[in-house]
Design a protein around this nucleic acid. Structure first.
Lengths: 343, 343
DNA sequence: TGTTAGCACTCATCGAAGTCGAGTGCTAAT
DNA sequence: ATTAGCACTCGACTTCGATGAGTGCTAACA
């Protein structure tokens, strides 16, 4: 495999390029403290590294730039885990300074602060509400034709759906229905509601309500709409300041992708727990060619709840970003766990 | 004032520049059908128009470009009201094709379609919920320390607030409170709730509930957070395709502004009813220097409810955009009026 | 045998100089 | 009042050479 000296050179090249965004030449490398051999030697080593695919030239006589493979190796083996400085830590902790009612607020603030600390774009996937347990259902008729159903979970999350009332249903039917639903469904996870309604509640409704099936379908239907995890962004325009995005068409592709939430989900979801780094084309997305995405999950107990992510150029400060995400996701997890534990 | 010939020339210049984004020269003008005099004559007239401030040169020997004053005059006096084509009309009407429960859906779809039809950025200010009437309040305790208050309006809009319970309050207190609130506040506009609570409900609560004041403040406080009208956007990245925004720094300013909702409100609010056109610096915003903003209000009956707007370059297809907004706002108004009339 | 100095070569970047063409303003003739 | 004609301007584009940071290769060296 690679010799120690090659590793050293690779590391310094990546570090330098991350800092300067300029191709790194042998002469400037040889002047670095860490490096004690001549530029000619470095040139030889660099030729080898290039042949192995870790670095590239932008043109025949240019300095070297890390390739995706180079970044990959750097992230996997050469990253010097960098301690966060105290200021960063206190800024992150300020997220939790206020008394907290709603995750959304925390999540939103997290996204904002992450993007400000890094100058990259942050993406935060809000906590999945789907396994929250139902606390209470209310149905409030608006007029003869429609009513709004309100679902409150044990975590204080509120979902509501407006639906048309079947013509035959009257107020007392509604009341009975609500009672039955509350009796049977309290404590059930949102994602299981639909199932449970058909399996357990249908029978009961049949006994008490005329036209129970219409009613039931209506309610069950209104629950089918996914309780989608919300996405929050911070620093959407930060990428505009990155030198690799001087090209308008690249910017456009990227911003277009950011503005389509449905395209973001597949990027940041279904990663394994913990920190994940996807570099350039590893994201399987043409708009992300020059971008890396670092994700971290946060959780309650063992259950992974959501994701925080940083989107930056491949030339990203991996070490710092990873530390930040690590730290924030830990904090999120512990705060949320404390919060959930109450219920 | 301006002679007919000058008006003609101004109009053709603006039309041509809107189409081509290129400065318009005397020679190319003289070749137009509408124009029957020579390029030299046009040059003389253009010199006059320039002196009067309606057109500008980009450099000494360039063609002419409309100034803000020129656009203003064009919009105020020269605009040929353009009939919408049938396709546009049917696309707009597709917004209302589905059965409608929630304004938000309509509004969102409106924003999307407006931006697609125009290739500019659309901004839609959702209907103000503040004058909706309260239909029902529910308070649902989550645990010993906190509860969530739910406010349902006659239009089916649901607001919820989580709050800490004063320690001395128990379940029966809550129930009584809710009853009193519902009795007294049903039918009151959201914006009047806070007032009404202190003026009318306080007394009643005092009679029935221990520590009524703590409870009351808590609830009233939770209502103080503004029931903010939501903003919806369409085509945020469309401006990236406009040739006047080849400059990254301009783009950044603009996109940054679009991403700060709080900066958008002052731009599109407190305009008089109907169509409003703000050109360039009329928007009082440095990021909008090369942009125009066209807004239209939609309403229920006489009450103006919200705003739809198109943000484009000053070189915008004023005629078409105005027609589109006019048409859509009319449709929105009539659909919403029908909807509201029910209650 | 690994390291290094030296050298020829490559290529992006920059500025100067030149050409082209679309445009203008002005003047004089119609 | 209109227009043809002409000198002039200036941005856009091209060419050219100089500069300098970088490379690869070779030969000398420890």
């Amino acid at each position: 495999m690679l010799t120690d000296r090659q590793l050293l050179i690779l590391q310094v090249i990546v570090d330098d390029f991350i800092r300067s965004a300029q191709p790194v030449g042998s002469r400037s490398l040889s002047k670095k403290e860490e490096i004690s051999f001549s530029s000619a030697t470095i040139r030889n080593e660099m030729a080898d590294l290039e042949e192995l695919g870790y670095i590239e030239k932008t043109h025949t006589s240019s300095g070297r730039v890390p390739s995706e493979k180079g970044y990959r190796y750097y992230v996997d083996h050469l990253l010097s885990p960098q301690a966060l400085n105290k200021q960063d830590i206190s800024i992150i902790q300020s997220i939790f300074a206020e008394r907290i009612f709603e995750f959304e607020k925390i999540i939103q603030k997290s996204a904002k602060i992450l993007s400000e600390l890094t100058n990259y774009t942050s993406i935060v996937l809000g906590p999945a509400a789907s396994f929250n347990k139902l606390k209470r259902i209310q149905i409030i008729p608006l007029n003869k034709e429609s009513a709004v159903a309100i679902f409150v979970t044990d975590s204080g999350h509120v979902e509501n759906r407006t639906f048309y009332l079947p013509p035959s249903v009257d107020a007392s039917d509604l009341e009975k229905t609500v009672n039955i639903l509350n009796e049977r469904l309290t404590g059930v996870a949102l994602e299981d509601l639909n199932d449970k309604i058909y399996k357990e509640v249908a029978m009961l409704l049949r006994q008490h309500i005329r036209n129970y099936d219409l009613m039931m379908h209506t309610i069950a239907d209104s629950l089918k709409m996914p309780v989608n995890e919300k996405l929050f962004f911070g620093g959407k325009t930060n990428m505009l300041s990155q030198p690799e995005f001087h090209d308008i068409s690249k910017i456009r592709d990227l911003l277009q992708m950011i503005d389509h939430e449905e395209w973001i989900y597949p990027l940041i979801k279904n990663d394994s727990a913990g920190i994940n780094v996807k570099i350039g084309r590893e994201n399987n997305n043409s708009a992300m060619e020059n971008c890396s995405l670092i994700t971290a999950t946060y959780s309650v107990g063992a259950e992974s709840l959501g994701t925080i992510a940083i989107l930056g150029p491949t030339r990203m400060e991996y070490s710092r970003v990873i530390s930040l995400l690590q730290f924030l996701s830990n904090d999120l997890t512990s705060v949320l766990t404390k919060l959930y534990q109450k219920y």
